[in-house]
Structures are given as C-alpha cells and as structure tokens.
C-alpha cells in the first residue's frame, strides 16, 4: 500500500489541464497571466542578480548597467517588470484567499479578478508618476 502511494505521489500526480481545452474568459486569462508574469519575474530576477553583481564589482561596472537601466528600453523593461510584480502579488493574494476558502463563488472571483487587473496597473502607474 505504501509502495503504491509513493508511486502515485511521484509519477501519477495530476497536471493542470491545458489551455486550449477552454474558451478564454476573464478568470482563465487572469490565471495564465499569473504564470506568465511569474516567468517574466524569473527573468527579472536575473536583472536583480546582475545588479547586485555589478554593485559588488565596483563603480565602473555599476555605472554601465545603471546607464542602461535609465535609458528608454531600460525604463520600459523596469516598468513592465514593476507591473508584472504588482499583478503577481495582487493575484497571488487572491490565490491565498482562495486557499482559505474565501471568495470562491463565481461573482466574487470575477469581482476580485477585475480588482486585481485594475489595481495592479493603477498602482504601477501611480508609483511611476510619484517617483518621476
């Protein structure tokens, strides 16, 4: 019995159903966005690691990377990553509430979905207006 359970645990674990099965709707789009922003943020983590690396390297190395970050493509990258971060954070919070059994009804999940989409974008724009 224990052997069977172990087999189930390591090899037969259920996978998420794939996207093309479904007709796109707000909840499914937000769901795949959570994964996409997560992947995007993983790439952003590379930038953070590199930033820390050049900071430890010294002023000359840091200056080159800093100039890139403050350029138009650099700022656009940072803005997108900022938005992805706020989206992933807000939607992640939505997931944590679901894990507690809260907000699972159809209406609540749609309302919280709209709330996440709007607030994450608005918060990013607000922050960038605030610091510019």
């Amino acid at each position: 019995m224990r052997f069977i359970l172990n087999q189930v645990d390591t090899q037969q674990r259920p996978l998420s159903p794939h996207l093309q099965i479904y007709r796109p709707q707000l909840t499914s789009v937000l769901s795949i966005m959570h994964r996409l922003t997560g992947i995007l943020l993983s790439l952003g983590l590379l930038l953070l690691v590199y930033w820390l690396y050049v900071l430890a390297e010294g002023e000359a190395s840091y200056q080159i990377f800093h100039t890139f970050l403050m350029s138009r493509p650099g700022l656009l990258t940072l803005f997108l990553l900022n938005w992805a971060l706020f989206y992933h954070l807000a939607n992640g919070l939505r997931h944590l509430f679901w894990d507690l059994g809260l907000g699972l009804e159809l209406l609540s999940s749609y309302l919280s979905g709209y709330l996440v989409a709007i607030t994450s974008f608005a918060a990013t724009v607000w922050l960038w207006l605030e610091i510019s």
């Binding site: 983590l45 590379l46 953070l48 690691v49 820390l52 690396y53 900071l55 430890a56």
Partner: peptide, 13 residues
Amino acid sequence: ALLALSLHSLFSL
C-alpha cells in the same frame, strides 16, 4: 548558482 552568486555579491559588499 545564481543564489550563490548573489549572496556572494551581498557579502562582499
């Protein structure tokens, strides 16, 4: 590897 690199950078700072 990336975690080791970043912690090393952090400590050397």
